[in-house]
Design a protein around this nucleic acid. Structure first.
Length: 369
RNA sequence: GCGGAAUUGGUGAAGUGGUUAACACGGCGGAUUGUGGUUCCGUUAUGCAUCGGUUCGAUUCCGAUAUUCCGCC
């Protein structure tokens, strides 16, 4: 069965909905933790459930290289392989086009993309068809079209050429797609150009995907530009399909995204910054390594309901980070993911109560203080 | 007691008669948006054991003192 999206309520452009998957039904808007290599770094599936996490991401490119999609397939698919029975979304490898293809003009061809393996330097060639075939084998709930995440800044000419190519890649991937229990999302590109965003959205929607994402954001552009890139595209996306803003997870951006009608977000931020001792709090981001926490025997947030806040103090977490102990990153990953998921829970409540904008203002006033 | 060697930041240390004393670790702070898990970027000695002397100028040369180490009686 394909996923389904049910729109429950609109408060302005902010949407409250349900995502119905083969691995459960979940409320949107939602935040999805990233687990590139078939694991959300440092966390077990039980811990993800404890923070009320729903969909998690994994990555086609990385699993293709290690352990290989056939191994995952023999294991019985990604869910069984990694012992996660919630929904899994696989990114197509499109972001790795952005991050790993060095010489874009030369490495990115109509046929596909030349990479050098980040593991051993071996030359690799990934195509839209291969990306989809790998994802079909991985058997995630949601597969993503193979795209090029356009860098910022990029010229109009490059952005246009790339956007048109991504559309052709989307078509090729969709044509070869073969897994009736898996859904496929199209990705809107277009760079930082309004007409290209519109064109990309309209053409992608014509192909009738199970959901749509807005890609190519948070690649170095300023926030205003990023919000415009959402505005330029989202008005052309159908209301009865989920909309996913790729790679965005700064708390401020979650509010800006929801306000514009986004249903799904993913981001490495909560887990990456956790490994570097940074914690989200309702009063902004803090660095637990800071000297001022040496004798602070209070939790990160006394109002937080996560395992870490219920059992550990800032002084102890600081000690773990200063001593280079991995448990610090683990405990903080739990907190940071819980923080973003709780923000989304509160956002959903506020939409339900017709006070999303009030909640946004209240949250940002404290967060940016 | 005599002779020799050494003494540079929190640590290990490089270095020079002349603008800002290398580098590493540590410390402090920052960054991080479809993950490069131990990453990246800042910053951190107004001073080279102490006191004198030579010199236009000394951390660098000379002397004394202190401390440490190694030999010998």
């Amino acid at each position: 069965m394909k996923i389904k999206y049910e729109l429950i309520k609109n408060d302005g452009d902010a949407r409250l909905g349900k995502l119905i998957t083969n691995h459960g039904t979940y409320d949107t808007p939602m935040f999805m933790p990233v687990g590139t290599l078939a694991n959300v770094k440092m966390l077990t599936p039980e811990e993800l459930k404890a923070v009320n996490s729903a969909v998690i991401l994994s990555n086609t490119y990385h699993l293709w290289l290690r352990p290989g999609e056939d191994i995952v397939s023999k294991a019985g698919g990604l869910h069984k392989f990694m012992n996660y029975d919630g929904p899994i979304l696989t990114d197509s490898g499109g972001f790795q086009v952005f991050s790993l293809a060095k010489n874009k003009e030369k490495d990115i061809t109509e046929e596909g993309v030349h990479f050098k393996s980040h593991i051993d330097g071996k030359p690799l060639f990934l195509t839209p068809e291969l990306s989809i075939q790998i994802q079909n084998k991985l058997d995630s709930d949601i597969a993503m079209s193979f795209d090029e995440c356009i860098p910022f800044p990029a010229t109009y000419e490059y952005s246009k050429k790339s956007t048109e190519r991504t559309l052709r890649w989307a078509k090729r991937g969709k044509d070869i797609f073969n897994n009736e229990n898996q859904s496929l999302f199209g990705i809107v590109q277009g760079g930082a150009y309004e007409d290209l965003r519109k064109y990309s959205a309209l053409e992608t929607v014509k192909m009738n995907f199970d959901g749509y994402s807005i890609g190519g954001t948070s690649v170095g552009e300023d926030k205003d530009t990023m919000y415009k890139m959402i505005d330029w595209a989202i008005k052309y996306l159908p209301r009865d399909k989920p909309r996913y803003l790729m790679g965005v997870g700064d708390p401020v951006d979650l509010f800006e995204g929801v306000e514009r009608g986004i249903d799904m977000f993913d981001c490495v931020l909560p887990t990456r910054i956790a490994r570097h001792s940074n914690a989200f709090t309702k009063s902004g981001k803090i660095n637990l390594r800071n000297l001022k926490y040496r004798e602070d025997f209070t939790p990160i947030e006394d109002t937080c309901d996560c395992y870490t806040c219920k059992h550990y103090t800032k002084a102890y977490l600081r000690h773990l980070f200063v001593a280079g102990e991995g448990l610090g990153g683990r405990l903080l990953s739990i907190h940071n993911i819980r923080f973003l998921i709780r923000v989304m829970e509160n956002i959903r409540e506020s939409i339900k109560d017709n006070r999303f904008l009030e909640y946004k203002e209240e949250f940002l006033k404290e967060y940016l203080k």
